[in-house]
Computed example of a mutant assay.
Amino acid sequence: MSIFIALLILSFLVFFHELGHFMVARICGVRVEVFSIGFGKKLLSWRFGQTQYALSAIPLGGYVKLKGQDDSNPKLKNYEADSYLSKSPWQRIAILLAGPFFNLFLAFLLYVAVGLLGKVSLLPVVGEVKENYPAAQAGIRAGDVIVAINGKGIKTWEELDSAVVESQGELELTLQRGQGALKENVSVRVLSIEQEAQNIFRENIVRKIIGVRSAGAVGMVHYKGLDSIIFGIDESIKASTLIAQSIIKLISGVVPSSEVGGVVSIVSVIGLASQEGLMKGEITQLLWLVALISVNLGILNLLPIPALDGGHILFNLYEVIMKKAPSENVAYYLTLCGWAVLLGLMLLGLYNDIFRLLA
């Protein structure tokens, strides 16, 4: 059941991506010949207007086929009025960007929903104060709840950590101390120091700290009204940045190729999250993961690989700058190379997926 839900979710993400291409193509006057969810043999199809809609046998992707665009044979050209190639490079770029943009926009909506519904988060409760560090010197104690930084309220330990890392000069922390009738608000000023640490990619870095550790308290954190929109924007930016950094680290060799995952990993992770989320009633856990995967799809499709949206955008930018389209043969062989790279990455992801399952 969980695998079925995972495939439905993945198909929905692909549908939303292709819907972006479809809508902007139609706005630009390009005929969409096929809109398919899945690849391979068409199991179910129907025609509405000039477009054939289909559900295909392999539910691990999808595509829209625009008139005049054929990735399988880039040498086939069509310049009729409703053809993709008859449009200006900027219109083509808009059509290509629409898919990734729809994925990112969907992720933003999902993050807003998570903020409104509530997310289980690590609360800003101090568990340990290290001796001779800025926090101890400022009078911060174990059990203190940090409720505001420089007059701005915070709700999670992550917000506290970000504020310290990004701090410029002293921070004014508002603490909630004590329980019941003895509860009081205390204001302290603390200046962070730099210390060696490791980032999520296990690289040695220097980061700012104040010398506190979390008490491990967790709770449901809600964001209402405008705060939910700000939360959605912040999380979308953080997820996009993390995925872009991961790609760069993978190319540079910091992240090993064994970390590359394929569709099997995506389906299994979504399936596990959907099962746990439905069992515990924590639907926000599933929404959070779906938002992250939607960002992943959006960013990956912008890679400058000719078989992906990013590669086609690169060709059109070349045409804008050079005032002429790339050589037919160059575009053809670059597209073949792009498909080879993409196929290689898919096979690597599948190999790693199978290895993880057997390990």
Rank of each mutant, 00 (worst) to 15 (best):
F4H: 00
I5E: 05
I9F: 09
I9W: 11
F12M: 06
V14S: 06
V14Q: 07
G20R: 05
V30Q: 10
V32N: 02
I37K: 10
G38Y: 09
G38C: 08
W46N: 05
Q50K: 15
T51A: 01
Q52N: 14
A54R: 10
S56I: 08
P59R: 06
L66F: 14
S72R: 15
K75T: 06
S88G: 09
R92L: 00
R92G: 08
L97T: 02
G99R: 11
P100G: 14
N103A: 12
N103I: 11
F108E: 09
Y111I: 07
A113N: 12
G115D: 03
K119M: 14
V125W: 05
V126L: 04
G127D: 03
V129A: 07
K130M: 12
E131A: 10
E131F: 06
N132I: 10
P134Y: 10
D144I: 01
D144H: 00
A148R: 02
G151I: 05
T156E: 15
E158W: 03
A163R: 11
L171W: 06
R177S: 04
Q179R: 13
L191I: 13
S192H: 02
Q195G: 05
E196Q: 14
E196L: 13
A197C: 10
I200Y: 15
R202K: 15
N204V: 15
I205Q: 03
I210K: 00
V212C: 08
A215D: 02
G216P: 04
M220P: 11
M220V: 15
V221Q: 00
T241K: 15
Q245C: 00
S252Y: 08
V255Q: 05
P256C: 06
S258C: 03
V263N: 00
S265C: 03
S265E: 12
V269R: 04
V269W: 13
Q275P: 02
Q275K: 13
L287Y: 04
W288C: 02
L292F: 00
V295R: 03
L297R: 00
I299G: 01
I299V: 13
L308C: 02
G311S: 06
H312Q: 03
H312F: 00
L314N: 03
E328Q: 14
A331K: 05
A340D: 06
L350V: 11
L350A: 13
N352W: 09
L357P: 09
